[in-house]
Write a protein that binds this DNA or RNA. Structure first.
Lengths: 140, 140
DNA sequence: TTTGATGCAAATGTTTTGCATGCAA
DNA sequence: TTGCATGCAAAACATTTGCATCAAA
């Protein structure tokens, strides 16, 4: 079996570059809309194929929140995410590591725990402020 | 506006009873297959409608792991879950509460954190043993 | 009787895939 | 030239929904 060679692709570069320059944690569909500004003919299939490729190669991370569609993030530094119950946005959290919870989980567990996926939820600052001023933050 | 009344339904009871008597954390489809043994004519739509009803009324919990489909759990006691990377099973963890991580997350965060969803992953005992004996645990 | 619940099927939303063509190496 | 990547469309899934009918109250 000959190892498959990865060829350069402007579409893939464009997807990765967009992800590296945003803090939005976009969905595949949002990435498709954005990259289409540069490549009007790019297909959604290509976007999905490249996102899968980038995740498999550890160049980006896939976030599976509980809102039906996956989100993507090119920030590989260890960090956790916050999901706003109000506007559904995903925000990065600047917090202490919580890897010790793996040890807690392993205490009475017979298998081997290698890590955890944690999402925090609540109301983001913008939505709190919007609620106070009675002007709901329409962001979706 | 008159408040909607909830009527008894044998199908809903059957779904809830199955969930209360299993530790499998089944998907809607698995629940459908199981309940069909008792109600051969039940439809998948009814299963989804009742699962949604039960979740909304706090009688069961929906688990959104990262495997495409949702899982359901009638165990309402506070506990966390483990997902096996090998056989994909979801297991209950018996562990100390980790609610203090919410405080850690809130330290430098401007919004309000209300809680977290945490999944631990790794290799379960059965899959570890199966690997040792070179007889992969075929459970999916 | 009234109206919520069901079965069925169609629709929806997300993601994957087959295939002929395009393009990097 | 070779063969990976693309565009397009169809398919595959998971889930939701419209509607006529059923059944609980």
């Amino acid at each position: 079996m000959t190892t498959a060679v990865t060829k350069f692709s402007r579409q893939r570069e464009s997807i990765k570059e967009y992800l590296m320059n945003t803090k939005e944690h976009p969905t595949a569909d949002a990435i498709y809309a954005k990259v289409r500004e540069t490549f009007p003919n790019i297909s959604l299939g290509t976007v999905y194929r490249n996102l899968h490729f980038l995740v498999e190669h550890g160049e980006i991370i896939k976030l599976s929140c509980m809102d039906g569609s996956d989100h993507f993030d090119a920030d590989l530094s260890p960090h956790h995410h916050f999901v706003c119950k109000c506007c559904s946005r995903i925000l990065d959290l600047d917090m202490e590591p919580i890897e010790h919870i793996n040890t807690l989980a392993n205490a009475h567990f017979k298998g081997r725990i290698e890590g955890n996926v944690t999402y925090f939820y609540g109301i983001c600052e913008e939505c709190s402020l919007a609620a106070e001023h009675d002007t709901p933050n329409g962001q979706e």
